[in-house]
Design a binder for these strands. Structure first.
Lengths: 247, 247
DNA sequence: CGCGAACTTGAGGCGTGTCAACCCCTGTGG
DNA sequence: CCACAGGGGTTGACACGCCTCAAGTTCGCG
């Protein structure tokens, strides 16, 4: 079933200007000079699209025609194997790109689901290709993003292949803190958008293990846990754990 | 220490023609029409470089100025964490690109080491950028390759995060068979270029576990193991194991 | 031929998964 | 206002898959 024909709701009557966006520095236009940035307005982003909590932005197997930049909200992406197992491969927040998996085969290879009511900027890939031709700095930034995505995944493989559960969770929290800080949010007062199960899936752990480690970290004074509210009390301690030096 | 200044040995007095290369269909020029392909000759690949078994093509931290296409031989790439752990993130054979990790930061983020005496095509990234501007089909193929690399890593994360040791090894062998077949080699008579330790590192397993599973697979008639020579006797059985249905 | 590295095999321990019970919070409806 | 259901989260007991350690064997390269 091809889901890409579902309704797209233009949020604004007209089109979207990246130069007005508060996260453009982190997003696809990152690193562009003001003039190049202006050239993209009303060209890069065709429209915005709302995705309600729990709904899919796209499914594996859908025809690929756009990539998406998260504008507001929070997403997860997950890979599925033929036999039904699936695993969260990442969480995306504002400024992150989603859908790069579809470029190779012109079909999406993974699922993307909103973890809260969200809005994305729809970037038609054909239009992006034309802009990549016309705006070399945009092309370079696009390549940087693809490359960093590759590196990020390899670091995640290191985590999954050779770290203990406590190290994985500490590394996850550190990554989350850094990304929140990059976007101007507090890195120490965190509201988790995802369930324990989704964290566990990303880290290759069960829900019970994630829960136990949260409790342990709290008892050690590293953080305070109250439902999905986290307070980071000892970032240096988390860094030490993530690097395998718990003392 | 910046290693990128080590000697580069041009194999041919002149430059390299992709259109003469036997793996161009799998490599960066894949999907190009004959005419576009001809345009790349002597432009895409500046020179070839020999890398002896055990030597590095580049190290993490090296300045990035080129990507490499494997022409002959076999490589591994590996990620290292600050505390000394490292993990193999992939094996590359002829037609595969190495070095895409460096685009984002202009420094290589991982290590690449030859597992046998090898030769690579050196593609200066500045020159590639110019060609991507001039040859749209090349740009599209480059994006396809980057995207497929992203998907490949996410599938590997699924493997590391949610599969049993036997399933991982079966999936590894199936992937290897497919890639050998794509290149015109026999998928059933395999000479492993990597050690048990390197296989284990890729799969998040110890050398002992890999060895035990090879023995077990052999006793079950799935394959024959003799040192680094593998004979695949029952590909369908391997597929079943990789999909979690051992019976 | 000989040495060191790579590999195999076995015994035992540990980290994390599995299973089960229970708690808490939220929303729903009488 | 309370009863209830249901999902998400926590905690405990136990099982098991894989790692660790150790010994022995084989292979590959100088």
């Amino acid at each position: 079933m091809d889901q890409s024909v579902r309704a797209r709701i233009p949020l604004s009557a007209c089109q979207v200007a990246c130069s007005d966006c508060s996260v453009h520095r982190i997003c696809l236009p990152g690193g562009l000079k003001a003039q190049d940035l202006g050239d993209l307005d009303h060209r890069l982003v065709a429209q915005r699209r709302k995705v309600a909590r729990g709904e899919s932005l796209f499914h594996a197997g859908d025809r690929f025609d756009s990539i998406y930049a998260v504008w507001t909200g929070f997403f997860k992406t997950s890979v599925a194997s033929r036999d039904g197992r699936d695993q969260v491969s990442g969480f995306q927040m504002c400024g992150d790109l989603v859908g790069l998996d579809g470029i190779g085969t012109r079909r999406h290879e993974i699922d993307a689901v909103a973890l809260e009511d969200s809005q994305v900027c729809v970037i038609h890939f054909d239009e992006l290709e034309a802009l990549l031709q016309d705006v070399p700095p945009l092309r370079q930034q696009f390549h940087r993003i693809l490359s960093r995505e590759i590196v990020r995944h390899q670091v995640q493989m290191l985590l999954l292949g050779s770290m203990y559960a406590e190290e994985r969770l500490a590394a996850f929290l550190i990554d989350l803190m850094r990304r929140l800080q990059d976007r101007g949010y507090s890195p120490s007062a965190i509201l988790l958008r995802m369930s324990r199960e989704e964290i566990g899936s990303l880290l290759g752990l069960t829900i019970e293990t994630v829960s136990r480690i949260f409790t342990k970290f709290q008892s050690e004074g590293l953080l305070s846990v109250r439902n999905r509210h986290l307070g980071i009390c000892n970032p240096a301690g988390l860094h030490r754990i993530a690097e395998g030096r718990p003392n």
